[in-house]
Amino acid sequence: MQLADLPSRRTEAWKWSDLRAAMASQEATLIGTGPIGGDGPIAAFAELMGDAYAPATRVIAAPGETYETRMTEGDTGQYGSVVVKAGATAVLIERIAVSGSALRPILPSFSRIDVEPGATLHRVVVQQNDVADGLADAAIVLNEAVVKLGAGATFRQFVLGEGARLARIEVTVEAGEGAVVDLDGVYLASARRHVDLTSRVAHQAAGIHTQQLVRGVARKGGRGVFQGKFFVARAGQKADASMRHNALLLEEGAEIFAKPELEIYADDVACAHGNTAGQIDEDAIFYLRQRGIPDVDARAMITRAFLIEAVPEWMGDKLRGEIEARIDLWLGTGP
């Protein structure tokens, strides 16, 4: 794998997240030979650099099992697969933390996930960034999951993306008959951080319900990217799919790029998407200030409420509390 093989802004799926340019400034050596495989560059990186899960395939058969992975600077990457057996319920938490402790780290992780018929998987990806303000933020975070859902399976996912020099968190879902898909996310792009939430849901069979809500914010010099695609095959009749992405540009010089896409070949479906990027409602800010809440707190309160709507109930109080605390920290209202 060579620099020239990596996707760049000329590659449609990566046009806003130029991996080649970001990698070109890393001092890491690209090793290995041969082209990038069919799973794409994130899988190739993870396979090349990563330790396989031990065991390489994690089989979850017991109900209510939680499986947690953790990756920080110094780790080389993760590559593995997860099978949730028919009827089982599992929680998969992937934590990726950047703190600026290593120079120019690359953190790739790739999971192939199989949710068997009737099984349920809740997946939470927490990509946090604790690099102090003003320090160079050099990490490249690449996370991808390819998820296959059996008939009647449920897959719920929440992603928190705090960005890095370049952070891309990607998921591809191939849903079977009557499957339920929930894909929610929050991204927080502060100065010099780039965060990209990309997803694709393929409705290959009938009666699939898909719901997606992603909320993001960007400050001056920060860049947020949302790419969402719902593909409904001819066999995907009765699909009920809703995609929403809303972003707030908190300061001048913030950047949001969004590409919501619907590609539908079935004729009996209910698919909708809504996409907005704008500024905080100044009338709302004035209302809060008129009641005595200082300007900076009023903005934090409105922004927090906006983001928290995309933090789903199914995560439970503990995880929700953790995500809310991250949002508060980012907004400057945390402890």
Partner: peptide, 18 residues
Amino acid sequence: TEIAGVPVMTFVRAAMNA
């Protein structure tokens, strides 16, 4: 003004304390 996501009591208490 409508303030999405902020319950009335939470808001009024924040205002009172501010």
